[in-house]
């Protein structure tokens, strides 16, 4: 298992290099102009000078190589310096990946936005899983019961109604009419005591629930299908024939088997958390990664978009590996090497 993981990690390196190159080429082909959002009074030759200053006058392969050096070498070295306090080489002149719009290092921007996204979107994922698994288990066990019918309706609704609709619906009902929760997420809010903690909970409830509903509806369907498959298996009859309680049959024997495909689905969904929920973050004004990406795209901030997209790619490759390893841990028939 360990050597398998190492081998997979080694294979990930060329994969990710190719991905980063493809992202770079695609972004380069896009008809973007980083000066487009500047005032129209700026004359064309000045605009050209701005573009040259950003390095756009150089050929694409050179720009890609420079990004690689900045991202794969300079940024990690910088991180090590920050953590350890050492000075490695000439840290003053080391070029970091700089956002064209804000002129600040992209990695710092991401580090700034990460907590909001992880809190809101990550929490919604956890809540979604916690809702989905019991619903899936009970729906499958009591197939075609009123609970199952309701669960099916719930997941159909949750899956087919877009989050921008449920988001607005929640705002109208809970913020405007009932006035229970604030409609705008205050990113600057700091939790210092119980009152501020309560405020944090209240402002998180709506975005978390909107996303949790969406996640839960997907995962509960997987859970239900997987449970139904396993409930038909012969080993379930064996477990009952041994005189096990129905709860033990269901929650030990069937659930353990049913979790195998579901855990894979859950693991593969984790990168989406970091990707942020672009639309939901916009609606509730959460200053997360999704929002950062949208702003970056709108202002043709190529280094920002390139870096963010590449980080998502890394996470996807990584969690594919995590899913495979988990699969091997949960299912003894699939132990690698």
């Amino acid at each position: 298992m360990f050597t398998y993981t190492l081998r997979r990690l080694a294979f990930a390196v060329p994969t990710l290099l190719i991905i980063s190159f493809i992202i770079f080429v695609i972004l380069d082909m896009a008809p973007n102009d980083p000066t487009a959002s500047l005032p129209l009074t700026i004359p064309p030759e000045v605009r050209q000078q701005i573009r040259d200053a950003l390095g756009l006058d150089q050929p694409m392969p050179i720009r890609y190589f420079k990004w690689c050096v900045q991202f794969f070498w300079n940024e990690p070295v910088n991180l090590i310096e920050q953590w350890t306090g050492w000075t490695i080489g000439d840290s003053e002149s080391r070029l970091r990946v700089i956002s064209w719009q804000t002129r600040s290092p992209v990695v710092d921007l991401i580090a700034e936005r990460m907590p909001q996204t992880l809190w809101v979107v990550g929490m919604s994922y956890v809540v979604g899983i916690l809702i989905a698994i019991p619903i899936g288990v009970i729906s499958a066990y009591k197939q075609y019961s009123w609970f199952d019918q309701f669960g099916t309706l719930f997941s159909m609704a949750g899956f087919s109604v877009p989050t921008f609709f449920t988001g607005l619906l929640f705002i109208v009902i809970f913020s405007v009419n009932l006035q229970w929760f604030p409609s705008v997420y205050d990113t600057t809010h700091r939790v210092t005591d119980w009152d501020s903690f309560w405020f944090q909970v209240r402002q998180m409830i709506m975005p978390v629930m909107v996303l949790a509903l969406f996640n839960a509806s997907q995962i509960s369907r997987f859970m239900r299908a997987s449970m139904l498959d396993n409930l038909q298996q012969d080993y379930v009859r064996t477990a009952r024939a041994k005189g096990l309680r129905e709860r033990a049959v269901l929650l030990i024997h069937v659930l353990r088997n049913s979790m195998i495909p579901v855990v894979t689905v859950i693991a593969l969904g984790v990168p989406q958390i970091f990707g942020g929920a672009i639309i939901t973050e916009q609606i509730f004004r959460v200053n997360g990664l999704g929002q950062l990406l949208i702003v970056g795209i709108q202002s043709a901030d190529i280094p920002l978009v390139q870096t963010l997209t590449f980080i998502f790619a890394v996470l996807i490759v990584l969690f594919n590996l995590v899913a495979d390893v988990l699969y091997g841990i949960l299912d003894p028939r699939i132990r690698y090497d």
């Binding site: 298996q233 012969d234 080993y235 009859r237 064996t238 477990a239 009952r240 024939a241 041994k242 005189g243 096990l244 309680r245 129905e246 024997h253 353990r256 088997n257 195998i260 949960l330 299912d331 003894p332 028939r333």
Partner: peptide, 27 residues
């Protein structure tokens, strides 16, 4: 149901047809 459970696997043992599927693969 509890008395029945005591019988099953206690006083009455079962062996089924297909040994390939009758055991739980993950335990």
């Amino acid at each position: 149901e509890a008395q029945l459970r005591d019988l099953r696997g206690g006083d009455v043992g079962f062996v089924f047809q297909d040994p390939m599927t009758s055991l739980n693969p993950v335990f």
